[in-house]
């Protein structure tokens, strides 16, 4: 499959947040300010790519030969949780500026369904190694794109008049719906 098409499809057409519904908790939680959503997006791209590579390797070189496919869920979540811990320790020790920028988002990522979701989708679509790498990076990039766009809208929304009962999560969800609708416009681009 063409890798460029795969990337475009993962970022725009099948956007992980707006078309696959993954990663909504941080979407509503952290997307109130542009700067925090940039940080979250960067952390997700970083962790999701690493986690996908590890889970893919473990699945095809450990679980499948041993006939333990059914343990997939358990193994994947453990890999992701320990990876997040490891990345945190590593960054703290070797890259202070990066740690200061991403550190506070890392614990949140363990329970971010986008990361686990990308790892599971890689297996479901039966991707090869490079397809998996491209798909993971571009899905996470799609997540970042959506969360950044959304944060900008929410900053504007903050100063507009919203009926009191629609304030907060309610209006956020409706806004996300309209964004998702506009992303559906991309669906003709790639089949």
């Amino acid at each position: 499959m063409d890798l460029v098409l795969l990337a475009i499809s993962a970022i725009f057409v099948n956007n992980i947040l707006l078309a696959q519904y993954l990663g909504n908790c941080p979407f509503c939680g952290v997307s109130k300010k542009l700067s925090t959503s940039l940080g979250m997006g960067a952390a997700v791209i970083f962790v999701a790519t690493l986690a996908s590579i590890f889970t893919w390797l473990v699945y095809y070189y450990l679980l499948e030969p041993l006939g333990l496919k059914y343990m997939q869920t358990l193994v994947f979540i453990l890999i992701i949780a320990s990876l997040v811990q490891f990345v945190e320790i590593f960054l703290k020790k070797f890259s202070k500026p990066l740690y200061n920028a991403l550190g506070i988002y890392l614990p949140l990522i363990t329970t971010n369904c986008a990361v686990m979701g990308i790892a599971l989708l890689n297996i479901k679509h039966e991707f090869g190694f490079w397809e998996m790498v491209v798909f993971s990076i571009s899905s996470a990039a799609g997540f970042t794109l959506a969360i950044i766009l959304f944060a900008s809208i929410r900053e504007r929304l903050f100063i507009s008049h919203v009926p009191s009962f629609m304030k907060g999560t309610a209006i956020a969800l409706v806004t996300a719906g309209i964004m998702s609708l506009s992303f559906m416009g991309f669906s003709g681009m790639v089949n």
């Binding site: 707006l18 078309a19 519904y21 009926p163 009191s164 009962f165 629609m166 304030k167 999560t169 309610a170 209006i171 956020a172 969800l173 409706v174 806004t175 996300a176 719906g177 309209i178 998702s180 609708l181 559906m184």
Partner: peptide
């Protein structure tokens, strides 16, 4: 039944619940 409908339906229900609580 597509993605946008999901977001909007949930958002409106949440608003409705808030109004009722209020």
């Amino acid at each position: 039944i597509k993605a946008p409908g999901a977001f909007i339906c949930l958002g409106l229900l949440l608003g409705l619940m808030n109004a009722f609580s209020h």
